[in-house]
Design a protein around this nucleic acid. Sequence first.
DNA 1: AGGTATTCACATGAAACTATTCTCTGAGTTAGG
DNA 2: TAACTCAGAGAATAGTTTCATGTGAATACCTGT
Length: 399
Amino acid sequence: MDNIDKIFDSYVSQKLFKNKAILQSNYTPETIPHRNEQIEAVASVLAPSLRGEKASNLFIYGRTGTGKTLSVQHVGMKIISKLKEREQDNLKFIYINCKLKKVADTEYRIVAELIKELGGSVPSTGLPTDQVYSRFIDLIDGKTQVVLIVLDEIDEAVEKMGDNFIYSLTRLNSSLKNAQISIIGISNSLTFMDNLDPRVRSSLGEEELVFSPYNALQLQDILRERATQAFSEGVVDAGVIEKCAAFAARVHGDARRALDLLRVAGDLAEREGSKKICLSHIDLANQKIERDKVLDVIETAPKQFQLVLYSILELTNGESGVFTGDVYNKYQEICEKTKNDALTQRRISDILGEFDMLGIINASVISKGRQGRTREIKMTLGDQIKIKAREIIERSLGV
DNA sequence: AGGTATTCACATGAAACTATTCTCTGAGTTAGG
DNA sequence: TAACTCAGAGAATAGTTTCATGTGAATACCTGT
């Protein structure tokens, strides 16, 4: 009882947060520090569209959390407000995130989404793709106008469905009489352009722009600005901002991660009933984020992956590594017990490789001489996470 | 002792198979004119 | 009559199996000293 009281008390009595939303990742700040150069570049590429001319296609690279999406959206907002101001109606700005599952991860859905954004509608299924295209053309070609299409995370889309949809989009201009479209592609991957059809590459990359990662000092500025808005005065201990920035800079200048870190640290401090956010909270927050990420992966993993992981969990009690064969035997045993079909060793080998990629296990190929060649598998997760992971798997398998 | 050859226990690749998801088409349905 | 919806055929895709080949070093087996 008194535990609950304590939780409530700490919530009521102290308010570390003034406005937590400011640290959430979907928040759009009015100012974007250290990105003036890029914003201006985007603006100057897109500016011709205000005069009704076709803007160059633009391609933007940069790691996650470098402000790509934010900057483009910022420019987009400005353009829209400019349009209102001048009472213009010959320009459309459409933003689509290609990564969103079930919304825009196929060619059909992307075009359907474009149509929806323009106020049209199409059935969610049942039409041939080229017909959707022609409907899209009908929709925009009705009058003279410029359409700016932002395709965020375009690399994901291309990975899923190949690059010919971009080609179709860029070629649409030739079948349009009145309207013109410009495409702004945003990608996280720097090498994305390299393995693209040359025709697509040249048309999409008329203008290119690179968003370099923030360094620690820039991250500090960003954090400081948001922190003053998000937290009440004087709750952020000295050095906290610096530490957050340093953590995030070490990964690769990911501002989103830095903000997450600060927010989670704030949460932890608040829950703990602390009056301040101090350095130790950052460490805890870092662990928590890491843990949540891993557990989320485990939770959403397919059943077979969970079974394999469960086998590994069963086997690793201690420092010494286990080998593929051990895991496979255990796995078969568990499959038998839980009435699941067991996969081949070949597949398990691949699954183990994938776990290694995800960083959930640490596997390295070693040769044991006459005892053959195998993977030596070690757990990298801490004990607490292991227990949690076990619970999750047991629940999802209904053991 | 030093050098080869063997051998283990999988790794790694390629191709074939399969179940599920997408796309497409035409028929049926609806609604508006 | 045009627009929409839907079911089912066919195509694409992801996950998996089958078959084949590759690998690094401990160990077994020579060989000549």
